[in-house]
Amino acid sequence: MGTNPKLNKAAPNRASASVSRRVSNSVIEKWKDFAFSVPALVFMGAFLYFPLLYSIYISFTNWNMTRPVMKFVGANNYTRLLTNEEFYQSMKVTFLYTLMDVVFTLAIGLLLALLLNVSSSRLFGFMRGVIFMPYYISMVIAAMVFTWIYNGQYGLLNQVVSWFGMDPVEWLINPSTALPALVAVSVWKGVGFAMILFIAGMRGIPAEYYEAASIDGASRLRQFRNITLPLLSPMTLFLVITSFISSMQVFQSIDVMTDGGPLKATNAIVYWIYTMAFVEFKTGRASALVMILFVIILLLTMFQMWVSRKKVHYEG
């Protein structure tokens, strides 16, 4: 008699204990799952999100990295930048460089894609590889080779120019040729990448479209204009925005080839940020400039997301 209630009491107890053990087990399982994302989150927090917030804070101070004083100065850095002639000069250089770089890289990349998109040929595959390779060669080394080609006295380019009866030019010392000279290096490095992505886009276009068009007697040019170009537009948009963003951050070639000169003709924004922070030690001002660059990049990215969302809708 006395054992029965005990049993009765114990039974639900045991059941609830096992339920709660199961619950706590699954909670532990969830925490274990979460734990695997922790290293990535810690690295991102420590080296990306915290520095990002800290950069915003620094941009509102008068901090000079070599001195311990850090005084809050409000928007002073921003107003000083936005009323500075040099800021607009640097913006102009950056956008001019970016515009030339994006237009030439994508236009030539598209032409290369049209020319080299022959899937069954090993020769064409090999040639695509050769054209793509500069994308993976260090910009420092590419810039070094072109510096030598541009050399005013012994450079190859002046030799080529002389064949056409023109006078030699100091390509990197002349303010009107220095920026295009930098663009050329970037175009050389980038066209292979654009070509590869355009070809990937072209291979995604169903062959029936072309068959139907040629039965209707549409010329190759018409097919290109009415089928290839419109159906490549998502890829083109992707390339325009991503190359725009990376061009705006041009730094290595300037640091190797021109140091921002001659007469600030190649003082693009990231190079200016670098000299401001690590040569003049105006850390606060440099951070404000970083933030302006970041906002521009953010707006471009949002624009891309907005347009590509509309595109998906349009196609669906």
Binding site: K30, S37, M44, F47, L48, Q249, V270, A277, V290, F294
Partner: peptide, 26 residues
């Protein structure tokens, strides 16, 4: 993994793609 906030955290990771190196170097 199965845990709450998984997709939100993944978005936070993805958002890092937008932040250029220059923003964090100082």
């Amino acid at each position: 993994g199965q845990f709450r906030g998984r997709d939100a955290l993944f978005l936070l990771v993805l958002a890092a793609l937008i932040v250029p190196e220059q923003v964090t170097f100082v």
